[in-house]
Design a protein around this nucleic acid. Structure first.
Lengths: 220, 220
DNA sequence: AGACATTTGTTAAAAATTTCACATGCCCCG
DNA sequence: CGGGGCATGTGAAATTTTTAACAAATGTCT
């Protein structure tokens, strides 16, 4: 069984594990039941030593001379990543972006159940997206309490993001994945992970303008 | 004037510059015309020495004892990031996610003009999103050639992503921002930047389960 | 004009992360 | 059942990135 967090490890390791996890899941479906770090590295464009190092923070999952049992490693990674349970998740904002997230099957597949969307628009509230209800913001606190929701995804316009964050924090949310391009301030013990789409595009523009780097991968 | 890429600098520097850029833009609108690295650092949750270091790779933009002229630094950053020009961008996939991207005003504001969406669905092709036409995939090559498009954003389901990528590469696209949760393979001199939403959520789930880290920011 | 309070740009040190290299363990085959 | 080859797990080295620390520059105040 995987040991969790025995020592310090790089921040990016977790994101890579998630990346390995999905690749392994796919290999498993294709009927491949053993893979070496070398082969996985080629597939994912990651050095094999990086893969072995990442895994070594959590346990010994391979067999020397043989490689890794795909099913077994998948199971261990699922455990490490906390995907062996269901996470109810709410989405703030029922615009196209919020709806896209609600429909994103990959989330569901990994144990993240979008259980509700929240919005303030008269037009949107009351409708549903693939069976997921769009609720009014004033039902937020009640809903979070009754459904033990700990994770929220912010998909509202930037000018509303901080207000929504404050509401979430007050309502007892424990983690926020933020797609609004603003730097959110939180007081309490709430984890915030921000993903900024504009920043990505700008990085791409920069690299196009000035560098000769061919291909690169971004975790974190 | 900023010197570009005089020496090697961290990969994350560019993303931070983009982050500084937006904060400065906002400060400027609020009528603030000077800021110190210290004050900016507090606002953005970045160490002041980090900011000075990042900027120092590209030139001397501050005045000792005084700080940085907001307007001037904004202008320089715009130049460094290549935002002083317009980039025509196409979006592959006109589902909710593609539409959300097309409507994302922040892109336009930073010089990224979404000039077309591409899809294969009968229902979608021919319609438009805020004046941006949804075209059929078989018009891709012609369109790219005629409109000098170099950047594409992939917002299609994972199983279609590699095929779409191949089409883009053949059609002469130079850079791809990929939101499909797959590892894309490209042959030619094409830059690919992948953003994996599931991975983010999984990282969040991990940190919730096992660590006491409060808040963290992710660039790159 | 000189002293003072700031805040930069930069060099050096520290910390974090990746990569290397190889001893160790494991399976297969004869 | 022992030798050969393979691929892991892991310390140590290399590299990258961040942080600290401070000399140099700037404006202000008297």
């Amino acid at each position: 069984m995987a040991r969790i967090n025995k020592y310090k490890f790089p921040k990016t390791t977790i994101e890579r594990l998630s990346y390995y996890f999905r690749a392994l899941d796919e290999l498993s479906k294709r009927g491949i039941d053993t893979i070496s770090s070398e082969a996985l590295g080629v597939k994912l464009n990651v050095k094999s030593s990086q893969i072995r190092k990442d895994l070594s923070y959590f346990g010994d999952f391979g067999k020397r001379g043989m490689g890794y049992d795909v099913k077994y490693l998948t199971k261990e990674l699922r455990y490490i990543l906390g995907l062996d349970r269901e996470w109810p998740v709410i989405v703030m904002g029922a615009g196209h972006f919020g709806i896209a997230i609600a429909q994103y099957t990959m989330f569901k597949k990994h144990g993240f159940n979008i259980v509700a969307l929240f919005d303030v628009s008269e037009e949107r509230v009351g409708k549903d997206v693939d069976g997921i209800k769009i609720l009014h913001l004033n039902e937020l606190e009640k809903f979070i309490g009754e459904n033990n929701v700990e994770i929220a995804i912010i998909a509202v316009p930037p000018n509303a993001a901080q207000d929504v964050t404050n509401l979430l924090v007050d309502a007892g949310i424990k983690a926020i994945l933020n797609f609004a391009p603003v730097s959110l301030k939180v007081e309490k013990d709430v984890r915030v992970l921000s993903v900024d789409l504009t920043t990505k595009l700008e990085a791409l523009a920069y690299y196009m303008s000035y560098t000769r780097d061919k291909l690169w991968k971004v975790f974190s």
